[in-house]
Design a protein around this nucleic acid. Structure first.
Ligand SMILES: NC(=O)c1ccc[n+]([C@@H]2O[C@H](COP(=O)([O-])OP(=O)(O)OC[C@H]3O[C@@H](n4cnc5c(N)ncnc54)[C@H](O)[C@@H]3O)[C@@H](O)[C@H]2O)c1
Ligand SMILES: NC(=O)c1ccc[n+]([C@@H]2O[C@H](COP(=O)([O-])OP(=O)(O)OC[C@H]3O[C@@H](n4cnc5c(N)ncnc54)[C@H](O)[C@@H]3O)[C@@H](O)[C@H]2O)c1
Lengths: 226, 226
DNA sequence: CCGACTTTGTGAATGCGTTCACGAACGCGT
DNA sequence: ACGCGTTCGTGAACGCATTCACAAAGTCGG
């Protein structure tokens, strides 16, 4: 009860529905485009079009951050960028360690989107002795044995796994042990993490198979004549 | 009415909830692992553990494909693989065209997971004259001008976009015009597609920003002491 | 052949997310 | 100053997905 007074400003962060959180980055991108195009304000309808959703969703999502719109006008673009960035924690720079500097790892290491979104690659790590020491995207590949050190000294809180599936759980455990509390997994395997560690995954094979399902469905129902 | 009799076998395909479809590939992967480990049958509980979900979800999902389990025993692994593959349309080989053979495109082109899951890369396409003609992963990079031909002669129904965001909508339109009906987009931008074209996206920046949100949330609530 | 045990398949309950719909609030033109 | 048109913010309705919980259906040892 007594602590409620001190919470109100930041308490909003805590109960933003996951589905809304996932759309905030998309709004942010859309807003950048609108700002570049010279828009000072934008209506929920305008932002909705730019973000590929409907306007009710935009308003509901933004309402979780606070009341920053002006009725009859819309939202001020700059202000909204600021509030969304705040909610997503993008006002600080997060450090990332990338484990597995193979085929995909090279592409990720060289990806400009990391830096431009405020994420710093604090280290590249691989288990292959032949890869350790190689310079990739301005960084030297370190040994997996040095993972804990890279995490600690680099202030790393996010780990990206781009190793083969067979190594992913081991790497995941090592990341968690080193103190990483958020993990993005590109390996096609289900990972176990303890409570308190956030896990997200990107799985190309799954995406393709979902597309396959829809192609198949179209061809089956289409063949009948409807 | 007369055609209903002919429908019953395949009609199941049509009303599988999207959320279930998205899990079927994960079950498939889990079942491969179980088969390799020598399991002949598996219970919903066992499959649930392997797939990282709960058993009720597994049973509900599988029930959409038909009644292939045996009460008191579980599901026969091989049979289940067969039925899921059928439902996902993986009994046929789908051809894919990859547009944008840059940093990420190279990694995707060389990705073994394409072929091993039954997807054939029918062509690599790029707009940069310097890239056209280059050999990547056993294929020669073709010009974007030849896209329609690659799609038609290759029997391509799935397109993968790995170009910069600015070119993605144009490429998307070209793919659709060429006859592609499913698209997987890696560029960080919202794409418009006509009805009947399936669109999915993979967005690294969005994933990282979602993780950022959770890191931020942890650090804010953690600082208070609870 | 039977009874105890296991596990499926599925209605019912619950929860979450989306969409609708409208009152309240604001800017602007007159 | 005031009314008009626009747009936000949000309760309520709706729909989809998840989870619960259990009867039905099978196995298997004796
Ligand atoms: N290449 C793609 O386009 C692509 C697409 C989607 C998913 N993936 C997945 O991403 C992962 C990496 O793919 P890739 O094509 O880069 O494979 P890769 O074999 O080229 O690279 C894997 C790298 O991980 C390293 N590694 C292996 N075990 C390790 C360990 N225990 N600790 C640290 N590093 C270790 C290897 O030395 C290698 O450098 C795979 O799981 C793959 O399925 C790849
Ligand atoms: N590299 C990564 O790890 C990574 C990760 C996530 C997302 N992405 C996204 O994937 C896309 C590609 O990234 P990248 O790092 O490979 O960039 P890149 O610049 O290395 O490659 C882009 C390629 O697309 C080609 N291209 C440009 N316009 C084209 C057109 N109209 N038609 C055909 N080809 C065209 C270019 O010639 C180039 O070869 C970007 O949108 C990027 O944001 C990349």
């Amino acid at each position: 009860m007594s602590e409620q007074g001190g919470f109100t400003a930041s308490a909003r962060h805590r109960d933003i529905p996951e589905a809304s959180v996932a759309r905030l980055p998309v709004y942010l991108r859309a807003l950048s485009g609108l700002a570049d195009a010279g828009h000072v304000t934008v209506s929920s309808e305008g932002l909705a079009t730019a973000a590929g959703v409907n306007s009710a969703k935009v308003r509901k999502d933004l309402s979780h951050l606070g009341s920053y719109g002006t009725r009859g006008v819309g939202y001020e673009v700059d202000e909204l960028v600021h509030h969304i960035s705040n909610a997503l924690g993008l006002t600080q720079r997060w450090s990332v360690v990338l484990v597995g500097v193979g085929n995909l790892g090279h592409a990720l290491a060289g990806y400009a989107g990391f830096a431009s979104r405020g994420f710093r690659i604090a280290g590249l790590v691989d288990a292959d002795p032949a890869r350790v020491g190689e310079r990739v995207a301005g960084l030297t590949v370190r040994s997996i044995d040095e993972l804990a050190e890279v995490v600690t000294t680099g202030g790393v809180s996010i780990g990206v796994i781009a190793t083969p599936a067979g190594a992913a759980q081991v790497v995941c455990d090592q990341l968690v042990a080193a103190g990483v509390t958020s993990i993005l997994n590109f390996a096609p395997t289900v990972l176990q993490v303890p409570d308190g560690v956030e896990l997200r995954k990107v799985d190309l094979a799954v995406e393709l198979q979902i597309l396959s399902f829809h192609e198949h469905r179209k061809s089956v129902s289409g063949a009948v004549g409807a």
